[in-house]
Amino acid sequence: MLARVANNLYWMGRYIERAEHTARFLKVNYFSSLDAPNKLSQSRQFVLQSIYQMVGETMFINDTLEEETVLFNVGLNSEKTYSILNSVKNARENANSSRDLISTEFYESINKFYHHVMNYPSDVLVKSGLYDFTSTITEHTAILRGKIRGTLLHDEIYALIMLGINIERATQIIRIIKTKFDDAHKAIGGYANPVKNSYEWTTLLKCAESYDMMRRLYKKSPTQLSTLEFLILNPSCPRSVMNSLNQIYTNICTIDNAKIFDKDSPAFLIGKMRAEYEFKTIEEIQINVQNFIEKTSQLLFSIGFKLENEYFYV
C-alpha cells in the first residue's frame, strides 16, 4: 500500500476517535456539573476551564471564560484545530484521499457525517443544541466504527485505521484522566491528600462511557484507585489503555509481522509497552500518578512518531 495512503487511513482513524472523545468530554462535563455535589464542581468557570484544558487551549489563570465561546470553539469553530468540526473535516479529507480503498458504504457514512457537522447551526449549538450535537457525534462515530468493522476486508487497510483509532483512544483516555485528576485535586484544594472519593471520578468514567461497566464490576462508588485501575489496566474495559495497547499490538502485527524483533521498530516499542502494562499494578501507579500519566502519554507519542517515520515517510 502507498505510504501516503497508509498515513491517511491512520489519521482518519485518529480523527474519528478524536471527534468522539472531544464530544463526549464536552457533553459529560457540562451536564454532570449542573447538579454536582460540591460548589467548585458546579462552578461554570471550573467546567469551562476543564474543557479547555482537555482540548489543549491556552488559558491564563485569571481569564473569565464565556460559555458560548467555549462551546463554539470546541464544537464548530473552523479556526480551532481542536474543534470537533475540524476533526470531522480532517477525517473526511483523509477518507477522500484513500477512497479507492475504503467501502462505498463507509465513505457514504463519513460523508454524511461531514455534511451534518458542517451544516450544524452554531447558534443552536451554543444555546440549546449541546446535548443533541454531542450525541449525534458519538452516534455517527459508532456508525463509522460499525462500517469499518463490517464493510472492509480485515487486512492492512483495516489494521491501519484501527491502529489510528486505538492510538488516539489511548491518548485521549490519558488526556481525560489527566484533566480529571487535576480537577479532582482542585476540587479538594491541593495535591497533598490522595483523592479517594470525588465526584470527578464519576465524571471521568462517564467521559469514557465506562461508568456502568465499572459499577457492575466493582459494585462500589468509584475511588481514585478503582477508577484508575479500571481505566488503565483492565483489559476487558473496551476503553482502557490496556485494551487499546492490546489492539494496537494486534494491528501492527497485521501490517508488519517481520519487524517485531527489530529493536528500533514501532512494533517492538508497542510490544514492550504492552508487556510492561500487562503486569503493572495499581499500587505501583499510585506512588506517583502524575508521573505515570506523563510517562504514558510520552510513550504513546513516541510510538506515533516512530510509526510515521517507519511507514509513512519513506
Binding site: 500500500m1 502507498l2 505510504a3 501516503r4 497508509a6 492492512e156 501490517i255 511507514y311 519513506v314
Partner: peptide, 15 residues
C-alpha cells in the same frame, strides 16, 4: 509525490 524515478525506472513509495 507517491512516485519517484531511479535509474530511469519508476517506483511508488509503499509501506
Amino acid at each position: 509525490r507517491d512516485l519517484f524515478v531511479e535509474n530511469d525506472f519508476v517506483y511508488m513509495k509503499t509501506i
